[in-house]
Design a binder for these strands. Sequence first.
DNA 1: TCTGTAGTGTAACATTTGTGACACTAATAT
DNA 2: ATATTAGTGTCACAAATGTTACACTACAGA
Lengths: 224, 224
Amino acid sequence: MFEILKLAPLFFGLEVQEITILINKVLHQIQHFSNNEVLAFSGDRIEKAMILLEGKLKGEMIDYSGISLKIEGLDPPQMVAPAFLFGPQSIFPVNLSALSEGKILIIYKNDFTSLLSSDSRVLTNYLNIVSGKVQFLSHKIALLSYKTIKEKIASYLLNQLNPGSSSLIMNQSQKGLAEMFGVARPSLARTISKMEEDKIIRWERNRVIILNLKSLELILGHLA
Amino acid sequence: MFEILKLAPLFFGLEVQEITILINKVLHQIQHFSNNEVLAFSGDRIEKAMILLEGKLKGEMIDYSGISLKIEGLDPPQMVAPAFLFGPQSIFPVNLSALSEGKILIIYKNDFTSLLSSDSRVLTNYLNIVSGKVQFLSHKIALLSYKTIKEKIASYLLNQLNPGSSSLIMNQSQKGLAEMFGVARPSLARTISKMEEDKIIRWERNRVIILNLKSLELILGHLA
DNA sequence: TCTGTAGTGTAACATTTGTGACACTAATAT
DNA sequence: ATATTAGTGTCACAAATGTTACACTACAGA
């Protein structure tokens, strides 16, 4: 019944039998949902942990005008909004609806904390998940706080660069990098070209050579 | 000895006696530090929970050029980087040094998870702290993701506006708003002027009247 | 009331980025 | 080997923002 949970990050390191025993020790429900069913609205209070067992869900973030901003699919054995289960704003960050029929494992908050207390592996896994979100978002904020394309490039290169090395292998196309930075590809190419002109870097297709590390660092230094 | 921890968010809802018993049930150390002592470098692995009992600490985020970007003070009974204790990048996000002599409560990770398991209030408190960080950072990212000044204005106004009202009292000067948005004041004024021209808003010194709410919302809707 | 400070409005010019387009190169699929 | 797709380089023009400067208005303090 819970075989899929062997693959869930929350239960990493546990066998199916162990998982089943843990879950059967706490109050839980199996909720069935049908195709196109709305499971939760953005802003609704979250009362329970929800882990997808079967089927497919969709999370939509809605903006002021009603146009959906971001759509994200959820497959088993993903947990719904793990980092919003606790905290001062424990509300659904998205509209949650079904893309198929399926099943969700439901554990109310108090029972979920009991589950966490009962096995240090599960507790550590959950703390890793939530803390990992913080670390991911912190990194994203650092990236978003760079305003100019030159800063974004410098930051990216300095982050990818191994200490003591002066070149790096690119595993990302310029097009992909532009998407990642949220900028226009031709603008990215133009800025790279300018940095090449200025003899800061040499940009080959799969490799970037740092010609003047100090200049690269100074680009970011102007942030203060 | 642990009286100050009565005020720590981690131990919210517990009495000093309860806190003392819990801490004495796990392995812990009291680390003394002296003025100006460096306690950790940015990038060092985090092995232990650290809660400040006495004294004052300073966290500095250093950028590539060596210029410090952000300085933050820590007072008792704050916990050092609570959201970085677990997770895939469990490293100090800052240089940590002392502004005075003092004492820190040290609990290694495994013992810290034992502490969390042993009292559901402490566990819930810790989950609230870390999850709250996610929620705070998510909100910050939403703000940072607006690229144009018009979007920032629209977002700010829609956030400040009481439902059903069509005007709001400004408790922030344009100059202050420009600083908050990280944009040039004349550029902000120009954009406001344009929105007035377009009959979206009327901007008086201490009051803004929304003339066309739909247009304001559409500004944000163009994000997709 | 007068003076100094803070905030505001606007202009000219400079800089950066976006957009749409096209030609060329490299990689992948048939 | 050829065709298709993806990525790259660059251009002209448009849009948005920054910078510097100055005049004017509002507010607070002496």
